[in-house]
Every structure is written in structure tokens, then in C-alpha cells.
């Protein structure tokens, strides 16, 4: 029990970081109605770009910006494969993801893992987040406000604010309309190819940003860090929706719900680990959880349907 409790701040911190990735997944999966598998690759791209740039002495914010742009570029590739080349969205994402493995390796100088020199106090002090701050902020070796929960929480709040603003603009509304009804969007003069590409670009930018934060948190970036990211993202989206979907209706709160979903996901992981599960089975467990939670609403609609009003839409 004490083991679990002492692991809690770390779990929340990690959940918050992955929550940013999950918000990216929310944009494609929920708003645009596209299952985008690019994220498994672009998450690592973000970390890779960050670790190489920051490691070679670049400014932290510059390295973060570069990571964001690299993720956006990955989203752009998937978007163009889908819209210009006519490849189904799922396959387009898989192709980019596969290609990114080589790209990520190349970025990381063909090493499977690149570490930040956090044993160097000066370097560590420059980082935005680190596993070391989780304890350090509490025992006084670092100021309390450097606790990852505070830093990433603030980061997330700013991102949600920006996204809330964006999806309230004409362009953002066009993107939402594309996901809601493509036919209507085109009839209202919206270039749906362009809005889809834009959505994928924004989403993968967030995913890469999240990857860059996790790389700092772990003090290293590994080539396989993003494997299964899409499933974690979906899990966060679904957990948040099931638990808070009825309470939070405002768009900003819905994004917050995703972040909370990711935190819960990581707390549950800690519980399961504390219960003595072999960490090897975590991926299986994640896949199972997502499969079950995706099944429930479908079966509910199919076998236990209440008479629904005509024109109703479960997607609302």
C-alpha cells in the first residue's frame, strides 16, 4: 500500500504527460472521426528530436518547438497520403508510422536509446519536467512548483485554452463539421481534404510534444517508447468519457476529461503493478481494457436499445 501511495505522484505526472498525447488522439478520433495510427511513430519522433537538439545544447523551448513541428510534419504526411493519394486513413497512418521507425532511428543517430545527461545538475535544472523533480519538489532539493504535476498541469491548461479558442473559430468549426458530416461540410463550401489534413497536423503536433515531455521525464528517449500509444490514447479518451462524459459538456471540460482519463489509466496501472502483475502483461491489459470499453456502448445500442428518437445521434 505504501508502495502504491508513494508511486501515486509519479503516476499522476505520467498520466498528465500522456494526457497531452491523448488530447491529440481525441482530435482525430472524436472530432475528425479518423482513427490515426501515426501517433505510435510521431510520439517517438517528438522525443527523438528533443533529445538530439537539447542534448547538443539547443535552448529547451526551441527543442520543444522543433519536436512539435516534427510531429506536425508526420501528421501532414499521413494527411497527404490519405487525401491526395486516396489511401484509407488507417492504412495511411500505418504507413507513416512504419516509415517513422527508420526516420526516428536516423534522428537518434541509429541508437535505440539516447539519454539526457541529467546527472549533470545544470542540465537537469534546465528541464521542464523530470522524474527527479517528483521527489525533489517534495523534499526541498527543488522548489515545490517544479513538481511535474504543477508544471505539466499548467502546460495542459494552456494547451486546452488554445484548443478551446481554435475550435471556436471559423476554421475550427469547419474542422468539427468535417468530422460530423462530410457531405454537409462540402455542401457548405468546406474543403474537407484540407480540414482533415489540418486536424492530423494539429493532433500529431500535440502527440510529439507529449513525447518530448516524456523524454525529459524519463531522462532518455527510446525507439519503442511510442509503441501502443494509440491504445493508451484511446483508453484515456474512453475512460474519461465513460466516467465524466455526462457531467462535462463544455468543450474545454471535455478535453480536460481526456487528460483525467489518462491520469486514471496510469493510476490503475500502478495499482495493477502493486498487486504484483508482471509488467510484461501491461500491453495486453491495455488492449483488453480498450476492447471492452469500445464494445460496451456498441452492445448497449445493439441489444439493449431503448427506443431512440428519430434523428438522434449517439455521437453527440
Amino acid at each position: 500500500m505504501t508502495g502504491f501511495l508513494s508511486a501515486l505522484p509519479g503516476a499522476v505526472s505520467q498520466g498528465l504527460i500522456w494526457g497531452i498525447m491523448a488530447i491529440g488522439v481525441y482530435i482525430t478520433y472524436k472530432i475528425l472521426d479518423i482513427a490515426d495510427l501515426t501517433v505510435d511513430g510521431s510520439f517517438c519522433t517528438g522525443g527523438a528530436v528533443f533529445v538530439m537538439l537539447f542534448g547538443s545544447g539547443a535552448n529547451l523551448w526551441l527543442a520543444l518547438l522543433a519536436a512539435l513541428l516534427a510531429g506536425m510534419l508526420a501528421g501532414l504526411v499521413t494527411g497527404l497520403l490519405h487525401t491526395v493519394c486516396g489511401i484509407p486513413a488507417i492504412l495511411a497512418g500505418i504507413l507513416t508510422q512504419l516509415g517513422l521507425y527508420s526516420v526516428n532511428m536516423a534522428i537518434m543517430d541509429f541508437k535505440a536509446s539516447v539519454a539526457l545527461s541529467i546527472t549533470n545538475g545544470e542540465t537537469l535544472n534546465k528541464l521542464l519536467v523530470s522524474l527527479r523533480f517528483v521527489k525533489g519538489a517534495l523534499d526541498g532539493s527543488f522548489p515545490f512548483w517544479r513538481h511535474p504535476i504543477i508544471v505539466v498541469g499548467l502546460f495542459t491548461a494552456v494547451l486546452i485554452g488554445v484548443l478551446y479558442w481554435f475550435f471556436g473559430t471559423e476554421l475550427g468549426a469547419a474542422l468539427r463539421a468535417t468530422g460530423s458530416n462530410q457531405n454537409m461540410a462540402r455542401a457548405q463550401g468546406i474543403n474537407t481534404d484540407r480540414t482533415k489534413v489540418l486536424g492530423l497536423v494539429i493532433s500529431n503536433g500535440l502527440v510529439a510534444l507529449s513525447g518530448a515531455l516524456l523524454c525529459q521525464y524519463n531522462g532518455a528517449n527510446e525507439i519503442n517508447v511510442g509503441r501502443g500509444a494509440i491504445v493508451i490514447g484511446l483508453a484515456a479518451v474512453i475512460i474519461g468519457e465513460v466516467l465524466l462524459g455526462k457531467v462535462f459538456r463544455n468543450f474545454a471540460l471535455k478535453l480536460l476529461t481526456v487528460s483525467i482519463g489518462a491520469i486514471i489509466y496510469y493510476i490503475v496501472l500502478q495499482v495493477v503493478l502493486a498487486l504484483g502483475l508482471n509488467p510484461n502483461y501491461l500491453k495486453f491489459l491495455s488492449a483488453l481494457v480498450v476492447a471492452v470499453f469500445l464494445t460496451i456502448p456498441y452492445w448497449k445500442g445493439k441489444y439493449f436499445a431503448k427506443p431512440v428518437k428519430r434523428g438522434g445521434d449517439a455521437n453527440a
Binding site: E170, S180, A185
Partner: peptide, 19 residues
Amino acid sequence: MMGTAPTMQIEENLALAAR
């Protein structure tokens, strides 16, 4: 079902059409 965005509000649909 084809002419409107179901997950958006009435006024949002009209605003899309106005543009």
C-alpha cells in the same frame, strides 16, 4: 441526415452555412 452536422448546434450549423 445528409444536410446538417448532427453533433453541432442549430446556430453553429447556420453559422457554417452563412460562411
